[in-house]
Design a protein around this nucleic acid. Structure first.
Lengths: 204, 204
DNA sequence: CCCTTCAACGCACGATCGGTCGTTCGCCGG
DNA sequence: CCGGCGAACGACCGATCGTGCGTTGAAGGG
């Protein structure tokens, strides 16, 4: 208990801050990372603008912290469940199912957080875009890694290009994420599921 | 010449308005349709805020007119060249090539206009989203129509689902459009080209 | 030559933006 | 019991937002 500061209830210890950031991540998929204003976020969590703002040094820091929170959510809602499946094609399919499920369940109201902010920031250089690029690279790497495992297990042809396959797989997820809220048709998510499954089967 | 009002130079006849809208379409792919402000647009075309605003009744009308202008540009830069190819698989591939080319040439600085505004507005109901939905539906229909022609020509198996194939094709274009500006890697566009070509070949 | 027309202007409005104060108030350690 | 720490507050800053109003100036028709 020496270094532990204070385990009491007084030390909400960033609990409030975390609640703010989770709301920010949700709102950002609707309003955008730039369009999300401090005032709207404050009223969404039920506190004053200045009270909320005291937790962050600038809007940039708020944006970066929001991205980290969204990353944590994405890991626990998508990557974690996906990686729980046995290695190989099953794991790749599980990652895709988990992604499409989190879109359908509206974990973020505007669909995939990173697709939303990537579309918004991909032509706006700066630390925010850099961080998003890192995340997207990591996600694509996870898919590609799964495909390589499937190759080493003989479930996918050794002649296939894992990077190309990962691009196509991710493209179907992104395409479904974009079209699903626009048309409100769950059949679009099924299209993506079928597309990925058949694509991997074709590469066997 | 009875109905023609005045062909003189005084009647710039919407020429100015058209220049405004083309700039608006370009800016909207960077700032977003909501994020694009009248003031910034005005200074971009070199006129005063109120002078520009006199051409439109409201920001909503400006947004809708911007969409129509972007639609015209898209038709002349993508759909037209694509449809010039002979019917069948070649025409579908030409549509995709024309799309990826207009992304690479940065016809709109932020990539595909409709992908950008769809990502921004797909969870914001209203006439703007409705109009975007119509356009996206038309574009998907064009791809699907091309695939059906290819089927009737025997270039694609009669057992294939044109709607599913159109979804997958468009997804690769959207995926490339999102990732290309983010990483600045033209190889991503080639990935989409390869993906579409191989997918259609596999459905032969 | 005047008179209409109209694009474009400057200016101003209420609201909201990101951001900074000084202040209050409840908790906890000494 | 008291002093201090920190979370939250209301008020305010200059800038910018969308949107109106009244005017100016040049061009065209009678």
């Amino acid at each position: 208990m020496a270094t532990t500061p204070t385990p009491s209830r007084r030390r909400a210890d960033g609990e409030r801050r975390q609640a703010i950031l989770e709301e920010a991540a949700r709102l950002a998929t609707v309003e955008g990372l730039e369009g999300l204003s401090i005032g709207r976020l404050a009223s969404a969590v039920g506190m004053s603008k200045s009270g909320l703002y005291a937790h962050f040094k600038s809007k940039l820091e708020l944006q970066l912290a929001t991205i980290e929170t969204a990353d944590t959510v994405f890991r626990s809602e998508v990557v974690g469940p996906g990686l729980a499946a046995p290695a190989g094609t099953a794991r790749v399919l599980a990652l895709c199912d988990a992604f499409l499920s989190h879109v359908e369940r509206r974990t973020f109201p505007g669909g995939c957080f990173f697709a939303a902010v990537a579309a918004e920031m991909n032509v706006r250089p700066g630390p925010v875009r850099d961080r998003i690029g890192e995340f997207v690279g990591g996600w694509m790497g996870a898919i590609e890694g799964g495909i390589r495992e499937a190759q080493s297990l003989g479930e996918i042809s050794a002649g296939a290009d894992p990077s190309q396959l990962a691009f196509e797989t991710n493209a179907m997820l992104i395409g479904a994420n974009l079209a699903f809220p626009l048309f409100g048709d769950p059949g679009i998510l099924e299209r993506a599921r079928v597309g990925v499954r058949e694509r991997l089967r074709g590469a066997a």
